[in-house]
């Protein structure tokens, strides 16, 4: 785990040393101007350009992550403790229509799989937070990570619900210019623009203070029922490739 932290820090150093990603001019001086060309960074609203720019560090993080996972599994000596409760996993599995019995080994495999899933999603979300120069990962970063990864299409309904909440918050607390950006976040089946920040209005620096404050009314888990979310399985099962 220490090695992993070291890798992460090294990656961050490399990320921050990239002049395109860390402009010497403070964003607060130019962000919010109607002319995006005046902004020193390369096409902040061009998904393709930003996507290419993001790919290398994120891809290397993920490559390191998978290599570390294989090593971790090879070195595992105790199979008695799991990072997630097996009974809860089994209960969720049985909640799926038509599932009758679940083997103990299936729960064990899922415990490890979910751990890997959460970590991959977290890595991708932290990449999104870094793009917006934030140290705090927000749900819009998770939404961005999901929209950029084909195998995560089945999660679109979950984050779409959250996007609606974000839109509500947008009307409450975001300046007019921010409202104009919000609709693009609600396109569920296409790649969202790279900037997912909820506080795009000037001055960027001081409005960033708001980012760290949790908004409690958004956090209610009862707002969604995940089991109703997935699209019909035949559509998903036909997918053969991943990004």
């Amino acid at each position: 785990m220490d090695q992993n932290q070291h890798d992460r820090l090294a990656q961050e150093a490399q990320y921050q040393s990239n002049p395109m990603m860390a402009p010497t001019i403070l964003p607060t001086q130019t962000y919010g101007h109607s002319l995006s060309s005046s902004y020193p960074r390369l096409h902040p609203y061009d998904p393709q350009a930003m996507y290419q720019l993001r790919q290398e560090p994120l891809q290397q993080q993920l490559t390191n992550f998978w290599a570390k996972k294989r090593q971790e599994i090879e070195e595992t000596t105790s199979f008695k403790t799991h990072s997630l409760p097996l009974a809860r996993i089994k209960k969720i599995m049985k909640g799926e229509e038509g599932v009758r019995m679940v083997s103990a080994e299936a729960s064990v495999v899922f415990a490890k799989a979910c751990e890997m899933f959460m970590m991959e999603l977290t890595i991708r979300a932290s990449g999104s937070a870094e793009e917006n120069q934030r140290k705090i990962i927000k749900k819009c970063d998770v939404a961005s990570a999901i929209s950029r990864t084909d195998v995560f299409d089945f999660l679109v309904d979950i984050v779409s619900g959250h996007n609606k909440i974000m839109e509500q918050q947008g009307f409450v607390g975001i300046p007019r210019i921010g409202t104009a950006l919000t609709p693009t976040e609600n396109v569920p089946y296409y790649q969202m623009p790279p900037h997912q920040s909820l506080v795009p209005g000037p001055p960027y620096g001081s409005s960033g203070m708001v980012v760290g404050m949790p908004v409690h009314y958004q956090n209610h888990p009862g707002l969604q029922t995940p089991t109703m979310g997935p699209t019909p399985n035949p559509q998903n099962s036909s997918r053969d490739s991943d990004s």
Partner: peptide, 28 residues
């Protein structure tokens, strides 16, 4: 999987929580 100084908002934690359940249901 994150560096020590990274922070996670409560809404991100809960979103990941929901995503995991969805993942289990999807694969199952």
């Amino acid at each position: 999987i994150l560096p020590a100084h990274a922070k996670i908002s409560d809404d991100a934690k809960e979103t990941i929580q929901e995503c995991v359940s969805e993942y289990i249901s999807f694969i199952t």
